[in-house]
Design a binder for these strands. Sequence first.
DNA 1: CCACGTCCATGCCACCAGGTTATAGAAGCA
DNA 2: TGCTTCTATAACCTGGTGGCATGGACGTGG
Lengths: 293, 293
Amino acid sequence: MDVDTRLLRYFAAVAEEGSLTGAAETLFVSQPALTKQIRRLEEDLGVRLFARSRSGMALTEAGRELALRVPALLDGWDETVQATGRAARVLRLGFLDAGAVGGVPEVIAEFRRAQPEWRVELRQFDWSDPSAGLARGEVAAAVVRLPFPGQERFTVRELFAEERGVLLSARHPLVNSETVEFWELWDEPFVAAGAGTGAWRGHWLAAEERDGHPVRVGAVTSLPDEWLGAVAGGCVALAPASAARFYSHPDVVFRPVRGVSPSRVGLARPRGRTHEAALDQLLEAIACRLTGS
Amino acid sequence: MDVDTRLLRYFAAVAEEGSLTGAAETLFVSQPALTKQIRRLEEDLGVRLFARSRSGMALTEAGRELALRVPALLDGWDETVQATGRAARVLRLGFLDAGAVGGVPEVIAEFRRAQPEWRVELRQFDWSDPSAGLARGEVAAAVVRLPFPGQERFTVRELFAEERGVLLSARHPLVNSETVEFWELWDEPFVAAGAGTGAWRGHWLAAEERDGHPVRVGAVTSLPDEWLGAVAGGCVALAPASAARFYSHPDVVFRPVRGVSPSRVGLARPRGRTHEAALDQLLEAIACRLTGS
DNA sequence: CCACGTCCATGCCACCAGGTTATAGAAGCA
DNA sequence: TGCTTCTATAACCTGGTGGCATGGACGTGG
């Protein structure tokens, strides 16, 4: 019997979440799509995996058996993807925002001169996956913003921290302040990441620094341009200081904010995997550069 | 990154075969379809897996790495499918032709009375897969015709052997003989299984009992009805004696043949897998019944 | 030297799997 | 009773996947 690993990830999400609706949200697909897929998986296997009820989906015994084994299968596949990349002398790195990887391209250029047989690919991921491709085994390592959900599955080396500020529409009244107090923003409509990103979304809404004041979400985006667009459209968004340098937009201005924690940038890689000397070397060089800056 | 296990099987076939054309044949897909799929796999991985040449496809280093790991992944999935079935108290058995499984349905009925919590499914496979679903992990055990390709990967218990004869069109001149000598059939157009079945196909063309006389293939089929249809249409086909009882067709007659080996029927299961007492019991009962008959 | 065979690649078309939105149905809860 | 929160169903759209026919590269044999 054949399956798509995507279907296994769907299953794992539903099993963990205990509900189609919830899992659909974290997976960024519609609930009917999940309903259909899970049903198809059951049909293909010829086995009932969930007991449906008004309150959600509970695993059957067969479902538990499957849930027990799926993570290892997915890990095995992800590991295989990485190994294949290594064999082809390809190092893939993920990142989320240009600010975090500032000097990395230069480091890569240098590395390429030292190790010409290796090819380095730097790939940007959108904010639907705060692990920048690590979670799905798409990259060997990633420059990430800490903390991110699922972080405990990886080895993370913190590189530096930078102050966070706010991006405002140029027509926003607070533009006139040199520095903004965070409480001044509490009632503003914020740009948020997708709901699937859990605590990461919360961190960028500074949910913990609001003294319990509720969050107003004005837009949900997952790409830089959408993000800036939403700000130009009147929303506000917390952003690392580097965003001011890397993302410029005629109608958007950056202001430092007092009262929010800084953003920490780290280098993450799967834990306990085969070590590749070239990757170690590249990561070391990146760490040196970014820590220094 | 996500893949369909089907795609991995495709890759494995091409890697082993060393050519798209050859692999396409054994997989029963067109060569362009394979070309496209392999290329897509390479694109998804961002890595070249094969070096193309006029003489075929040679694995690159990355390809070898992948080829090294894929079998374990596929086995892992197949094993998971089986485990899930066991957890749901389902026993799936495969078979190819009604003749080989003669009394099995009764055995199953009996088993169901003894073990009412288990569900037994008896599934027929077509001749594109002589392992009756074992090769793709679709069944926990299968009643097969020996020998079959890939047999060494399974534990096989031989149950009985039956004489082989020939199916002829009712209008065929040899119908008048009580018994046919095999050499009389050497120049007849035979019905064959797909080319992907290798030695199994050869066995049913009795390639080794022809004294080097070439085979004439008149039709390629993979299902009983097509098979009988081809015979009615003027081809001939070797068939086990039981076929005379189980497959009747107004324009087709069965005649014993002298000079071909008998067909051996066996019970096969994956080797070295977790043992399930209920499955052992069922297989034991089937073995008793079929050996006795 | 040319004709042929044998590879893989490409273009075009048909079909279905997989996604989306809208909506229905069932069941707790205020 | 009405609201909320689940899952299931329906209708529709798109893109992936496969099939056929064909092209192009290259070695081989007459």
